[in-house]
Amino acid sequence: MKALAARRQDRRAPLVLLLLALLLTGAVYAVVAPPSADASAPAATGDDVETGRQIFQANCSTCHGPNAEGTEWAPSLVGVGAAAVDFQVGTGRMPMQNSGPQVLAKDVQFTDEQITQLAAYVASLGAGPAIPTEEQVDPAGGDPANGLSLFRTNCAMCHNAVGAGGALSEGKFAPALLETSPEHIYEAMLTGPQSMPVFNEATLTSQEKQDIIAYIEAQKEPSPGGLELGSLGPVSEGVWAWVVGIGLLIAFSVWIGAKSS
């Protein structure tokens, strides 16, 4: 029995060690590195982290817990990164107002500075994706043709071919992208908010993300064909054919069939 126990211990030891080492690295990294992970946003100082912590305590801790460790109702924010905060708070999704199938974008509740501070605080809790630089999200640096290929493979099934949005199950939906800022689009891909999957560097490189942003930006140009009818595809075209086309033609028919006065 003793021998058996010893062997068992033997086998487990490296694993435990590895875990400990990982934890230690993580902890060290968390202490040393987080602010530098964010090169674009105004450099987060210790003050920012502290102010961010206070904003967090006042506005977010009810759901996310006093130390953002998560509660029954809301996920832990350790390791979600500054990008997630900038997206969720910057689009007004957080703080969440009422529960429903999904959290909706609304008026932003904080100033840009406060959002930066909040992001700095959350980033200080554990390593996670940083807010992208202005250069990274500049549509001019992307190739819209490659963007089309990537967008239709990875995004169009939910967000529609040109980003007009679409339905998911049980009342959830993929929002329209035409009003969304390139920065938020980038952050959404990076962090995978709510139903959306995560697209990390391996799935879509930063250049590819930029290509996608370039493609979405290109959709803001006028459509060569005229009014876009919501870019919703054949159903809206059918509605317009009936309302405008058949409507006008019946109006003309009535005029032709009516007796002249």
Binding site: L148, S149, R152, T153, A156, M157, C158, H159, N160, A161, V162, A164, G165, G166, A167, A174, Q219, S223, P224, G225, G226, L227, E228, L229, S231, L232, G233, P234, V235, E237, G238, V239, W240, A241, W242, V244, G245, L248
Partner: peptide
């Protein structure tokens, strides 16, 4: 008048056929 003012079936939005992609709002004509 409709052809002049209202865009219909803008195929360049969907891209050339490939069996992998699909877009939300994938419907046939009415």
């Amino acid at each position: 008048l409709m052809g002049a003012t209202m865009s219909i079936n803008p195929v360049w939005n969907y891209g050339p056929y490939d069996p992998s992609p699909v877009s939300a709002g994938a419907q046939p004509d009415w």
